[in-house]
Write a protein that binds this DNA or RNA. Structure first.
Length: 269
DNA sequence: AAGAAAGTCAACCGCAGGGAG
DNA sequence: CCTCCCTGCGGTTGACTTTCT
């Protein structure tokens, strides 16, 4: 098709952002809101491509970002979500308010992978590694919840949930639909046959940054409307059930939700 | 104290999906 | 219905920092 480059690469900066660039970007977004990333750099006086601006904002400058260490609860939630969703970092990030997909992806690759390996669990398949000596050596059990340690007795803090009513069935993904899934590993058996996700979570408000006062006060433009639409997209949308009975955007959340895993062909949780 | 190795994380790249015209 | 544009996502890279020898 001949995709046009996202920007004039010859006149754009690359690499680390300077404080001045950050300030320009923040100031522009505060004044005009997010969106239209392609034209933003020029409008904001930045010699960056739109993608770079978006990334910088999403991963670093957004005011609602939570910086700092992940808690053990965060770790376990990420592990469970990864077992459920695979490398869908944006979806996983959506369940961890204030965290970005990039941050979680990095954290997974640098910390959690090792943590799982030390437990004798394959980070990709979430199944015990053959031999399982690592787990035995580390003194950790892999018997419960597909290798996950039993949840701590203390109640888990409230978390957003992927809430799917019991009567919802995901469309069976075709190989072409899901062929790019990077979940990897063998599909001979369910990845987490006895996975007890313990996701006693609930959908929280979208964690999109606050819109600009000006934008909120004035009649929304189509762009702003689009932003608002995006901001209210629920996880049902991501999982392909938006608009159906499962979608909590339309109806109050009924009780008795459960997870369904659409990622592995022909297999559901 | 210096150099090497390992770890961390911000940023880039290319692709896919959705929507507008 | 088709084409093109824009946005978002996931994988990867490379610079920087920390730890080890």
């Amino acid at each position: 098709m001949g995709r046009s480059p996202c920007c004039e690469k010859a006149h754009t900066n690359k690499g680390a952002w300077t404080k001045e660039e950050d300030q320009r970007l923040i100031a522009y977004i505060k004044a005009h809101g997010e969106g239209c990333w392609r034209s933003l750099p020029k409008a904001a006086g930045l010699l960056r491509c739109g993608k770079s601006c978006r990334l910088r904002w999403m991963n670093y400058l957004r005011p609602d970002l939570k910086r700092g260490n992940f808690t053990d609860d965060d770790d376990e939630l990420i592990i469970k979500l990864h077992a459920l969703l695979g490398n869908k970092w944006s979806l996983i990030a959506g369940q961890l308010p204030g965290r970005t997909d990039n941050e979680i992806k990095n954290y997974w690759n640098t910390h959690i992978k090792r943590k799982l390996l030390s437990r004798g669990i394959d980070p990709q398949t979430h199944r015990p590694l053959s031999g399982g000596s690592a787990a035995a050596a580390s003194g950790l059990t892999t018997s419960s919840t597909a290798g996950f340690p039993s949840p701590s007795p203390a109640p888990r803090p409230a978390r957003p949930v992927i809430a799917i009513p019991p009567n919802v069935m995901f469309a069976r993904p075709t190989p072409s639909e899901d062929g790019h899934s990077s979940s990897g590993g063998s599909t001979d058996a369910p990845r987490c046959p006895d996975l007890n996700l313990d996701l006693d979570l609930s959908v929280g408000p979208p964690c999109s940054p606050p819109k600009t006062p000006a934008a909120a006060a004035s009649t929304p433009t189509s762009q702003q409307q689009q932003q608002q639409k995006r901001a209210t997209i629920c996880l049902c949308y991501h999982l392909g059930v938006r608009g159906g009975e499962a979608c909590s955007c339309k109806t109050a959340l009924p009780a008795g939700f459960r997870f369904l895993r659409p990622l592995e062909e022909g297999r559901y949780i």
